[in-house]
Design a protein around this nucleic acid. Structure first.
Length: 578
RNA sequence: GCGCCCGUAGCUCAACUGGAUAGAGCAUCGGCCUUCUAAGCCGAGGGUUGCAGGUUCGAGCCCUGCCGGGCGUGCCA
């Protein structure tokens, strides 16, 4: 239980003792202003209103019976009925003393631990990954890491698109090139070009288009030659994805891939089960599920189509099969889908049908974690821009190059290899953080300068704060991993930093619940800002006495642990100097 | 037509079950390197939170209407 949750529970209990109905939330939040202490409880006002009592009076009564003396030094009623709380030094010191174990360390699986499926990245293997794939991949990966850190069993699922009509076109193009191994090799080296050439042939040559459609049928009927070709293409495309994952530091590997095609054998069964459950309706030749809660135009019932008139299945069928697999085979209690918000309706329908059909039990948490569309600098959706999208590899090249140039300018005396390494870590970090630090659900504008900025609220700022701590320890010739000393918080800057440090678990709890890693970014930035102020105002190595020096070194050491751990949960690495 | 999302400083974005004086970064302007890394720090300016009502002790957040934008809406994924 985090400090905030403890306060919430204690104040809630106090409100109840003071006469509020059971379960009246205390609504404990970080104080909105420095003068209001460390936390504030806002619940007394709402509760008093329901009771017809004076809010300040209820707050007063609650405070009188609140058992918070072990945590809080000062508590006072302010304004219409806020309860402002200032933590005691003893409380702060307890948290800081055992910081690595109590605040930083990953939580062991407890009673409330869940088996959580995180469905993310899921690129379409027909094409090369582009910048639009960044959001699902980066945000999903951060969430998988945070969930693991908070004690949950995470099951990563990379639901890659490896099936469907466009593969007929690609395989046909492969066949045309097949009599020339070098040409095929060369074409496959660049999937974007490969796709474009195949599409050109498809659009311009009716015979090719027909062959492509025939190939789809052969593929789906299990033709061995087709399957071999298909497998060859998938391998190339998958290796390309894996290279990007490795470069990005994304934790997805081959074992997390559970492709669309893996559900092929389940699809007929899904439709049968829907039929057996009495949910299936034929409409215009298609097999559909109609649920009352979904209405289309003119209040007409809105179907979820699971089988086309020609017998083919759709992605709704695959997603239903996936829910069933994740629930029954993987035994997931919570399933998170980091998928574009354009599929909101689709998931609402799939989840509702899955429950109705019993593919997932009522208590399973099925949550679409939508993210917004990446827009071009003209404000229009990125993918529709003429001239094609920006390749991910292109963006990463540029990021690494700019970071390398900058470190070379700042620290020319570092060895070439180290500067290259710093360029990679800082460049990739900047790109990932630029994406992670924005609220997932809002559309956002892709901007080279935004993605590749190294100033202000960016990953390099956090990485820089980390290197400052490391530099202190190098100069002090002390090993930061084994160093410890009692911490005393005298200066305001020291106390402000300590407060930010001990709040990290609260942020992780919210991130875990809501799937919003930008809150972790914001908190890490707050920690770094507090550290920078501390660093400016409180000399460490030149402190007036040894105890003060060691106290500040210990505080700096906590800071580096918080930053390194926090960044690693975002999937961002650190360097010793930059 | 109906449904979902969005509209906050010049730009890009925050604002945690409705909380106190709406915050950052970038950009602009002014300071700070003979002292722990200036990728930094300190300070300044910049807002009718699209518009109009409503709900209440209190609204960027909730409700209604309007304006503007995005997406979705039966056989692609």
């Amino acid at each position: 239980m985090t400090l905030r949750e403890t306060l919430e529970a204690r104040i809630t209990a106090a409100l109840e003792k003071a006469g509020a109905p059971p379960g009246t939330p205390a609504i404990v939040q970080p104080a909105t202003r420095a003068g209001f202490g460390d936390y504030q409880a806002n619940g007394a006002m709402g509760a008093a209103k329901k009771l017809g009592r004076k809010p300040r009076e209820l707050a007063e009564a609650a405070l009188a019976v609140a058992e918070i003396d072990d945590l809080v030094a000062h508590a006072e009623i302010a304004g219409p009925g806020f309860i402002n709380l200032t933590l005691s030094d003893a409380c702060l010191n307890r948290q800081l003393a055992d910081y690595a174990a109590t605040v930083i360390a990953a939580r062991p699986a407890g009673a409330d631990a869940q088996r959580v499926v995180v469905d993310y990245s899921s690129p379409n293997l027909a094409k090369e990954m582009h910048v639009g794939h960044l959001r699902s991949t980066i945000i999903g990966d951060a969430m998988a890491r945070v969930l693991e850190h908070t004690g949950h069993a995470v099951l990563r699922q990379n639901h890659v698109g490896d099936w469907g009509t466009q593969f007929g076109m690609l395989l046909t193009w492969m066949n045309e090139l097949a009599n020339n191994d070098d040409a095929l090799e060369h074409e496959l080296a660049d999937l974007e070009t490969f796709y474009r050439h195949a599409k050109q042939r498809f659009d311009s040559d009716p015979e090719f288009a027909q062959a492509a459609r025939d190939t789809v049928v052969r593929l789906q009927s299990g033709d061995p030659d087709c399957l071999r070709r298909w497998q060859q293409f998938i391998d190339v495309s998958m290796r390309h994805c894996e290279a990007l994952y490795a470069r990005l530091g994304v934790s997805l590997t081959r074992e997390h891939v559970h492709a669309e095609s893996a559900y092929n054998d389940d699809l007929a069964r899904v439709v049968e089960d829907l039929d057996a459950a009495g949910l299936l309706t034929e409409s215009d030749g298609a097999q559909c599920v109609f649920l009352d809660e979904f209405k289309g135009k003119d209040d007409q019932p809105l179907p979820l189509i699971v089988q086309k008139r020609d017998g083919g299945y759709l992605y709704a069928t695959t997603d239903l099969a996936a829910v069933r697999h994740r629930s029954r085979t993987l035994r997931a209690q919570r399933m998170l889908y980091f998928v574009d918000n354009r599929q909101s309706l689709h998931f609402r329908q799939v989840f509702a049908v899955a429950r109705a059909a019993g593919f997932a039990p009522e208590e399973a948490q099925l949550e679409h974690m939508p993210f917004g569309t990446m827009l071009g600098e003209d404000g229009r959706p990125f993918a529709t821009r003429s001239g094609g999208v920006v390749r991910l590899s292109q963006l990463l090249d540029e990021a690494e190059e700019r970071a390398y140039a900058l470190v070379t300018e700042k620290n020319p005396e570092l060895a070439e290899a180290e500067r290259r390494d710093i360029g990679r870590v800082v460049g990739i970090g900047a790109v990932k953080y630029a994406d992670l630090s924005k609220h997932r659900s809002s559309d956002y504008v892709f901007s080279w300068d935004g993605m590749l900025s190294f100033d202000g609220n960016t990953a390099p700022y956090l990485q820089y704060a980390y290197t400052r701590v490391r530099s202190l320890f190098r100069r002090a010739e002390v090993d930061p991993d084994s160093f410890d000393a009692p911490i005393t918080l005298a200066e305001p800057a020291e106390r402000a930093l300590a407060m930010q440090l001990i709040r990290l678990p609260e942020t992780l709890a919210v991130v875990t619940r809501d799937g919003l890693p930008h809150l972790l970014c914001a908190h890490l930035f707050d920690i770094a800002v507090a550290f920078m102020a501390f660093y400016e105002q409180c000399p460490v190595l030149a402190a007036s006495d040894a105890a003060l020096r060691d106290s500040r070194l210990a505080l700096a050491q906590r800071t580096s642990a918080a930053l390194k751990t926090g960044l690693s949960l975002l999937g961002i690495a650190t360097v010793e100097r930059m």
